[in-house]
Simulated scan of single mutants.
Amino acid sequence: MSTINQIETYLASLPPAKRADMEQLHERILRTLPGCRLWFLDGKNDEGKVVSNPNIGYGETAIKYADGTTREFYRIGLSANTVGISVYVMGLEDKDLLRNTLSDRLGKATVTGYCIKFKKLADIDVAVLMEAVVL
């Protein structure tokens, strides 16, 4: 199954309200990052065990591990979770950047070093969220 088909299947599997928010964000990210590489991670490890929520990924970055190795990964991740939606901004060198530049303008969201979590799209300022997408 192609990445686009996997993404469409994932979005279709979500409850209606969350699906609508995720589809809006997906389209907005695609408009913000035209031509970016798309990823889909089903949340399962190599043994097929579920270890995370499924993620839609956009763009590319290199993840650097403590042992010095690197691997290619998405730069922006989008995932539905039990409480709401998470947007991951990978590859930031300054782990305080999101908190310091966006959290006071974003709305009702929790901002960590690389993750922005919120319950529903109406709780946040999407334009501010898109600033994080292009950091």
Rank of each mutant, 00 (worst) to 15 (best):
residue 124 I to K: 12
residue 123 D to L: 12
residue 106 L to C: 07
residue 22 M to T: 04
residue 43 G to L: 05
residue 34 P to Y: 00
residue 101 T to Y: 07
residue 60 E to H: 05
residue 105 R to H: 13
residue 80 A to S: 15
residue 128 V to C: 04
residue 80 A to I: 11
residue 49 K to C: 03
residue 73 F to W: 15
residue 60 E to F: 00
residue 123 D to A: 11
residue 54 P to W: 12
residue 98 L to W: 04
residue 32 T to R: 10
residue 88 Y to K: 08
residue 53 N to F: 11
residue 123 D to P: 09
residue 66 A to N: 11
residue 39 W to K: 02
residue 67 D to H: 11
residue 36 C to L: 00
residue 26 H to P: 02
residue 88 Y to T: 11
residue 40 F to I: 00
residue 124 I to N: 12
residue 82 T to G: 15
residue 126 V to L: 12
residue 21 D to F: 09
residue 77 G to C: 02
residue 91 G to L: 08
residue 71 R to Y: 07
residue 74 Y to R: 07
residue 99 R to S: 09
residue 106 L to H: 07
residue 70 T to G: 04
residue 113 G to P: 03
residue 51 V to Y: 09
residue 20 A to I: 01
residue 21 D to P: 12
residue 124 I to Q: 13
residue 81 N to T: 08
residue 49 K to G: 05
residue 87 V to T: 13
residue 58 Y to E: 07
residue 68 G to T: 05
residue 98 L to N: 04
residue 117 K to E: 14
residue 50 V to W: 07
residue 89 V to R: 14
residue 115 C to L: 11
residue 95 K to P: 11
residue 38 L to S: 01
residue 58 Y to S: 00
residue 83 V to Q: 15
residue 117 K to L: 11
residue 20 A to V: 03
residue 37 R to N: 08
residue 23 E to Y: 11
residue 86 S to T: 14
residue 37 R to P: 03
residue 111 V to M: 10
residue 45 N to K: 03
residue 39 W to Y: 01
residue 71 R to F: 10
residue 41 L to W: 10
residue 56 I to K: 02
residue 65 Y to H: 15
residue 75 R to T: 06
residue 74 Y to H: 05
residue 93 E to I: 12
residue 111 V to I: 08
residue 124 I to F: 11
residue 76 I to M: 10
residue 68 G to N: 04
residue 57 G to Y: 09
residue 58 Y to L: 01
residue 119 K to E: 14
residue 107 G to H: 03
residue 21 D to Y: 10
residue 123 D to V: 08
residue 74 Y to V: 04
residue 45 N to T: 03
residue 98 L to H: 03
residue 81 N to C: 11
residue 98 L to D: 02
residue 121 L to V: 02
residue 58 Y to V: 02
residue 111 V to Q: 10
residue 39 W to L: 00
residue 33 L to S: 03
residue 22 M to E: 08
residue 111 V to Y: 13
residue 111 V to N: 07
residue 84 G to V: 06
residue 23 E to R: 13
residue 32 T to N: 04
residue 79 S to Q: 10
residue 128 V to H: 06
residue 85 I to H: 06
residue 53 N to M: 12
residue 53 N to S: 14
residue 62 A to H: 14
residue 112 T to G: 11
residue 97 L to W: 15
residue 45 N to C: 03
residue 60 E to R: 05
residue 43 G to W: 06
residue 75 R to G: 08
